[in-house]
Every structure is written in C-alpha cells, then in structure tokens.
Design a protein around this nucleic acid. Structure first.
Lengths: 224, 224
DNA sequence: ACATTTCTGTTGTTTTTACAACACTATAAA
DNA sequence: TTTATAGTGTTGTAAAAACAACAGAAATGT
C-alpha cells in the first residue's frame, strides 16, 4: 500500500493530511485492498454496503440495469476517486448500481464507521478526514443541483440560458469561458448538438448574447 | 430554545439523540436563534457561510436570480429541515441562492466547525450528529441522482420509463404505487401533463405496462 | 343526493426538437 | 503544402412535445 501514499495524499479525501499520517490512519481505518480483473464485478446492485471504495489503479465503471435489463453506463471512476460513498454514508439503502472493473484495477476499501469514530480524542487528522468526506458529498450535491436546474428547463433555449447565466454568475462577469465544446455541452444538457448550435445562432441574432468559440458574453440590456 | 427540543429530536439532524443530550449539545455547538419577519432575507446570494440553518417555526423559501434578474423559487423549507448545509460544508463557495422568510419565522444556526470538532473525546452523541449530517447529504445526493437520471432522457416516454423502472426496482416488484398524481409527476419530470397522460395511454395500449390511478404494473415480456 | 371542484384522459394545432446530411472552418499530421 | 480530422454552423424533414380546450370520472363538501 505504501507505493500509493503519494496518490492518496493528492485525493480529495486525504487532502491536507501528510503522507506519514495517512499511513498510520490506514491501519486505524482497517483499510484493505483488493484487485480485480477487467470485467469483474466490484459491487453488485442490491447489496448493502458499509465501506467506501477508492480506485488506486486502473478504472471502474458505474453501471445500471433498468427493469427490462437495459444496461447503461453512468460514469467512469479513475484513480484517486471515490465510489459508492453515497450508499456507504446512508448505510441502509441497497445499491441501485453495480461497479465493474473497466480494466485490471486495485481498489481500496475504507470502513465508513471507522471513518466516523475517531480513534483518539485528539486525532486532528481524523477530523480533517471527516471534513473532507463531508466536503466531497457537498460538492457533488452542488454539481448535481446546478445540472438539475438547467435540465429542468423545457426548451433547449431555456436550458442554454440557464447554463450560461449560471456560468456568468459563477465568473462574476457577463463574459466567461466554458469548459465544454459544442458536443460536450449538448451532452451535458441532454439536447441535440445541431439544434443547440442553431439555438445559439438565434440567441446571437436576437442580441441576447455573443460568443466566439468557448467564450460567451451575455448582454445586460435584454428584457423578456 | 427549550420549547423546541421535541421538534429537534424529531429532525433528521438530531435523530437518535435524546432531548436532554440535545439540550447540552446546543450550547456546545454555540447554537443561536434569530427571528425574521415575512419577506426578510435570511441569507444573501454571494455570501460565504459557515453555519447550517434550521427552520424552527414558520417557513423559508430558497430563491435564485439569474443573470437577467429573473427570480425563481427553488424550494420551500419547513420547520425541522436544514438549509444551506451544502454551502456550509464546502465553506468556500459563495451562495448561489438566497433564503427568504415566507412567513414570520425562527431560525436556528449551528456552527459547522463546532459540529465537526467533537467537544469531548467520548461524546458519542457528537459522532451521531456527524453521522446524521453525512446521511442527510448522502440522502439528498441520492435523490438528486435519481431525478437527474430520469431527466437526462430526451423524450417524455423515456423519462416515464426511467422513472417507473426505478420505482419498480425500489419496490422490488413489477407492481408498485407512486407518491404523485399526474400533475405532480409531470412537474417532477418537467414535462407537460397532458402529453404525459397521452404517452401513458400509448404505453398501456402497447402492452408495456398497465396502471390504475397511482398503481402501476410493468410487463416483463417487453423487448425494445 | 346534489353541486362543486379536482383529477384524468383525449384530441387537434402549433411549436420545438431530433435527426440526417452537408458545407465550412481551424487545427494537426503527413 | 497537402491531407486528414475534429469542431462548428446550416438547412430541410420527420417526429415529438407543448399548448389549449374539452369531456368524463372521481373525490369532496354541503
């Protein structure tokens, strides 16, 4: 496990904790590692879990099967990132997804209860760990809320305006750059790329905004 | 504050903690109360906060203004429920929403750092409190993820199937009841009610499912 | 029992979207 | 420079959704 200390110290979960401290914490958390071959199941839908998983090497897919057995990939987890932390924190809800190795990989499991129960009263690193876990959940929460807000809009136009308005407020400026190209933005908003491009063209023509590549400028004087 | 101990003991945050223990914890958390008149701002967009808010009496609205100043109500918080916990947990991201009293109300503020830092090493209730906070965030996370999954579908039909499939898996049965009437379901999925009703009719005609009021039965033998 | 209101399904029309096909960059690679 | 290649905008068409308006069923209150 030693060889992963550098990786661990760069993860969101262990951020702010020195390598030597991480090392001793791992025993205290009864952390254990497991290896999986490509295609192997790491966690199964329906299971109730009490451990948080972290990818150390390789990567894993979060997949879901609906009532009729249609499989879909929800996301990919790469090294340093957590998975199943939501279910581990709740503790009573069975997994609604499965986790599968998308390449040979090594996974670190951390007991959720041991994360919560500080080992010694003065263990400041433990408090930091809990803080990091809370921050991770909260951050994910915020990301989901933002996306949901855009997706709740009915038309492509309104989804675009909701997203761009949010980016503008985040940047505290009517001018800002976005981290997506057109296809990625369309995927993010779950709309058709060409229809979205078309809508962007209309918005520009109507003077509501201008853009060049990934830089957008919203116009203040627009009234509905 | 004493008169709210019963209310507090029934909240998600303090669940599993006895009233007498809550009472002593409140001081330890330097909890403080504030009252607001209807329409008064409790939290302002742009502020960075380090306290979690809980409505004790009355209710509050979470509102948001977009780039052009269009206001929208995101949700209503009633007594016993938390607000702004996401921002308090992250600690560095300025509020993207405002919180306004929708009636005269009393609000309890709890310092996030004091929640994290256990007062005495053996304070088991404190651990429980942290656990409850984590569970609250995780639960919200799960709710958001589920909704986002349905909303990511492009057509009303697929949104419906995604939602109903999810409910069926949750109930572990092809037959289940939903907690929404038609209008509420349409609002939840951000689609038009009549169009949704129409789509439900088609799905029934095609033998993919049947329903009666709020009870649905999905048919196993359906292939795409 | 009756009246009233809420809920639900149905239909036709208009608007919006997805889809497909293509042209025009810009950029990188050969 | 030429040749790919990925990214973007444009257009027409078919499909789907929103909208509006209404009718019947169910629930509620009097």
């Amino acid at each position: 496990m030693e060889k992963y200390l550098t990786l661990l110290s760069n993860t969101t979960l262990f951020t702010g904790i020195a390598k030597e401290d991480i090392s001793s914490m791992l025993t205290c958390l009864s952390a254990h590692m497991a290896t999986y071959k490509k295609g192997e199941f790491i966690l199964h839908t329906g299971n109730t879990i009490h451990e948080v998983g972290m990818v150390l090497s390789g990567s894993a897919l979060i997949i879901k099967e609906d009532f009729w057995g249609n499989r879909s990939i929800l996301s990919e987890v790469s090294s340093g990132f957590l998975f199943a932390e939501t279910y581990a924190c709740i503790g009573t809800v069975p997994l609604e997804v499965s986790v599968v190795a998308s390449s040979d990989c090594e996974i670190l499991f951390l007991d959720f209860h041991k994360i919560l129960t500080t080992c010694s009263s003065t263990c400041q690193f433990h408090t930091k760990l809990i803080h990091n876990l809370l921050a991770t959940l909260a951050q994910k929460n915020l990301t989901l809320t933002r996306k949901l807000e855009h997706m709740s809009q009915k038309t492509t136009r309104d989804k675009l305006l909701s997203y761009l308005s949010g980016e503008s407020l985040k940047a505290k400026s009517p001018s800002f750059s976005i981290p997506f190209n057109r296809q990625q933005l369309a995927d993010y908003l779950s709309v058709d790329r060409s229809a979205m491009s078309n809508e962007l063209g209309k918005l520009k023509k109507e003077g509501i905004l201008t853009y060049d590549k990934n830089t957008f400028i919203l116009k203040e004087n627009f009234h509905e």
